[in-house]
Amino acid sequence: MGSFGTKNTVLPGFGPALGYTIFYLSIIVLIPLSALFFKTATLTWDQFLVAVTSPRVVASYRITFGAALFAASVNAVFGVLTAWVLVRYRFPGRKLIDALVDLPFALPTAVAGITLASVYSPNGWLGQWLEPRGIKIAFTPLGIMVAMIFIGLPFVVRTVQPVLEELDQEVEEAASCLGANRLQTFYRVIFPTMLPAILTGFALAFARAVGEYGSIIFIAGNMPMVSEITPLLIITKLEQYDYAGATAIATVMLVASFVLLLSINLLQKWSRRFAE
């Protein structure tokens, strides 16, 4: 047998399990993605550059990645807060709130988009109060962020929650015995322990936001250069039978997302260097 993975374990089957994993990932992920690259490769280098750097496309990158980073950051802060409340306090309705967190996962994205758009539109429930104060949410980049925050909410909560549950109360007691005040206990002891989970949740929320299409197009207004997201641009190209152009933009998105996720993963690895 080979030199790795063949130790006697309780559950045997390293060979078949790895084989299946690779087969599965190939069918589900690698083959479709490589098709994307092959289609893109039908363009010449110049054609590719023109397709992916036209001002309208560049503006859509900025709005998509910018809004996604913003939304993931907001979710990181409020996700931690939500997880904290759910883990640390016992109050009536806690289980209900716990279940509500997952709702953005289950709701069809179009339903979410239409709901958000009508609530935040100038004559909607919230929009009618915000509009007179000069805050326009629906049909602006702000609307995109709202939709992205909505669909990314569960990620940080669900990654941070188990870590907080595991966090030993004794560690906090030890800190206060050593003279640390509450703030110091939080940022020197509790926060560093949560950080890897927060980063994981951030990365997941970010990835989801970048790829989101259904809920955003209803609230974004989709004005070129202002509130048009890259996935929508890809669809537009497809509708114009510009398949190679669509895949070119998709390729850029894919590579950019991959690089961002990889760096977040490295950051996350660094933040849990203690858990070897």
């Binding site: 030993d168 004794e170 030890a174 800190a175 002891v189 560093p192 322990t193 203690f274």
Partner: peptide, 8 residues
């Protein structure tokens, strides 16, 4: 159970 700060 020691209660050491595991990230330090």
């Amino acid at each position: 159970h020691y209660a050491l700060f595991r990230h330090m």
